[in-house]
């Protein structure tokens, strides 16, 4: 990483992998930002744009799959090069999933745009999305600078995302019990919340792979997990 390979075309392959990851990262960052704006402003044109952008994310993932396989077969990378190639493959899979979740949120906007707002749940969703967006930005920075501390910090921030999701879950259940007419909107919002929570998990996974890339070991300590929605009921 720090110095050049004797075979220079190997460096070109590795740079190309980095460039694709950067493009994918930029795209999913934008997808998430756009989908949240579209959700709040009920902008279905923007929502459609998020759905359309996902095709490019998928294409880039295929390109990563193809290029990593080629590099493994033709270059037989070792040590940090091997880790770099494996981590790129894992990152691409995680970024692609993040794109899918953003797209899934976008699809729900067409229905949510027709519905009344549900209390101040939009605010909580936005706060959660804001946290996840910052996590994505930091994890991409951590990858670009090979900053293990930054990656570890991202990993620990997922706790807060889980907390907001759990509380939103409880809140939405309460709204549904109070007024059955809100069930459609609340159910879609539940999925929105769950999707953002899952995006947080994928960002965390990327952070762990960056830790592995730099140190050669996956983080060993248990990460605090605070998604309690599976054990939540409202009487």
């Amino acid at each position: 990483m720090e110095s050049e390979h004797i075979v220079k075309s190997f460096d070109d392959d590795l740079s190309r992998l980095d460039a694709i990851i950067a493009e994918m990262g930029g795209l999913v960052e934008r997808q998430l930002a756009s989908v949240m704006t579209a959700l709040v402003t009920r902008d279905i044109v923007m929502a459609q744009q998020v759905i359309d952008d996902d095709k490019r994310v998928d294409e880039l993932e295929s390109e990563i799959d193809h290029l990593t396989m080629t590099v493994l077969a033709l270059r037989q990378p070792m040590a940090d090069d091997l880790r770099a190639v494996i981590v790129v493959l894992k990152m691409a899979a995680n970024l692609e999933r993040i794109g899918d979740y953003a797209k899934n949120i976008a699809k729900r906007i067409f229905i949510l745009a027709e519905m009344e707002t549900v209390g101040n749940t939009a605010e909580s969703v936005q706060r959660m999305a804001g946290l996840v967006q910052a996590m994505i930005k930091n994890v991409l920075d951590a990858y670009g600078t090979l900053d293990i501390n930054k990656a570890d910090a991202v990993r620990l921030r997922d706790e807060e995302v889980d907390r907001i999701h759990t509380s939103l879950f409880r809140e939405l259940l309460t709204y549904m019990m109070e007024d059955p007419h809100r069930i459609t909107a609340c159910t879609h919002l539940l999925f929105v919340s769950k999707n953002i929570e899952r995006i947080g998990d994928h960002v965390t996974s990327i952070a762990e792979y960056i830790h592995f890339l730099v140190s050669g070991e996956m983080p060993e300590d248990e990460r605090p997990k605070c998604d309690m929605s599976s054990q939540t009921s409202v009487e």
Binding site: S3, E4, H5, I6, V7, F10, P77, M78, A79, D80, D81, L82, R83, G216, E217
Partner: peptide, 19 residues
């Protein structure tokens, strides 16, 4: 040695950075 060498020289050699 081949997945996480400790010394920079080992690293450089096995990844093809020094001759």
């Amino acid at each position: 040695i081949f997945t996480r060498p400790q010394d920079e020289r080992t690293q450089a050699y096995i990844t093809g950075r020094i001759g």
